[in-house]
Design a binder for these strands. Structure first.
Lengths: 210, 210
DNA sequence: GTATTTATCCCCCAAATAGGGGGATTTTGC
DNA sequence: GCAAAATCCCCCTATTTGGGGGATAAATAC
């Protein structure tokens, strides 16, 4: 019954046209079987265990439980399935939420058919396929502000504050006096125009200083 | 002199064989010119301004200034150049450091020639090319632990602690009593077996609970 | 080569915060 | 219906924080 050469795919996508389109496209390809296609997470939840998919193509915008919320729930039902997000949205928060919830890849719907097919195989093999536009967002998210107002030492101390360290802990870690730490923190506060650790962290993150 | 149809490329790579290999490979391709190739950042620094590269292919392991450190320095000299890392290393820390320092893409040296050529164009057009293996590391870095010992509320509070918020601030933000915040934090500390904010943050990050 | 920034250290102070201990009650999920 | 989760209450002290006010040597910048 289960052909090990075949990648078993389940599609969860509310738009019937798109759903059928993907099912047709993928089903036609040698080595790929679409075992089922659902219009919502609720529909899928009932039967997906018996579908035993290798890969789940998941839309973000779904009626009822949205795609991001559906990810951990799907993972609970079929832990070995890799989830590949297929959506029009390119918002940083959505991408990060999907990935942190357990998605293994993220494609936008303008992705060419051949690339979708490739990505299914890639995710099946443990890779992490992304659209070009998504990769760009992800890479940019790492990039730090290159013209930070903070000195190296200040940045270093701000990072320790970010890690929840107290002033005495920072002093010990950097082998400097407690008062030196104080001075640096005061200067950081002046430069960032804040007067608390929480605000400093917020400003620093918003401006990618750390 | 400057052919706008041509992507101007500079290679910084200490291994002569590899360096010449890339230079030949890329130079042969229509629309791509290797304007110069250097064995170290120090060599490159002197002349790269006049090279006016669109894309810099940069090795991580270099004599003298290493690749990661070279990135911000190169960015200062030629701000408009996109830096593409080409290395054998796949360590998470190295990848993140390179990207946060301003690299626009990250390829491993086993990448097929055609993919390297494509990636140069992609980075030139503002994309963020990555090798399959790198994409996997990057995507995995986002993934949260799916079987956290913490409840939703506890995770939420731990995230606020992570943001440097004090107990009163957390209480206000969540519309709950200060004592309730205390209880949650106590429970978090018990579950994570810690007794300070800094330790809680460390354990939480190491285990990807937040 | 002078000026600015940076990194280092010192003192004063009051208020806020954290963490440890001991509970209780209600709501929610399986 | 039971266990976990979320809510709230009291005791306590030591630590931490942030706002003032400085100084000095070294490194960096122009």
């Amino acid at each position: 019954m289960y052909n090990s050469d075949n990648i078993r795919i389940v599609i969860i996508e509310d738009d019937k046209t798109i759903r059928d389109g993907y099912a047709f496209l993928i089903g036609q390809t040698e080595g790929y079987s679409v075992v089922n296609a659902y219009a919502s997470f609720e529909d899928a939840a009932k039967k997906i265990a018996t579908d035993a998919p290798d890969v789940i193509l998941l839309d973000i915008e779904l009626p009822g439980t949205n795609g991001v919320e559906a990810i951990p729930k799907l993972k609970k039902i079929v832990p070995r399935a890799n989830i590949l997000i297929l959506t029009v949205y390119e918002f940083e928060k959505l991408i990060f939420d999907a990935l942190s919830n357990g998605a293994s890849g993220y494609l936008t719907k303008n992705t060419p058919a051949a690339k979708i097919i490739d990505s299914i195989k890639e995710v099946q093999q443990g890779g992490g396929p992304m659209s070009v536009s998504i990769a760009k967002v992800v890479i940019n998210s790492f990039r730090k502000n290159q013209d930070s107002p903070l000195s190296k030492r200040e940045t270093q101390i701000l990072e320790l504050i970010y890690n929840g360290k107290s002033r005495p802990q920072i002093a010990t870690e950097l082998f400097i006096d407690l008062e030196t730490v104080r001075s640096h923190i005061k200067n950081i506060y002046v430069k960032l125009d804040v007067n608390s650790r929480a605000d400093a962290i917020k400003i620093a993150r918003d401006n990618k200083l750390i």
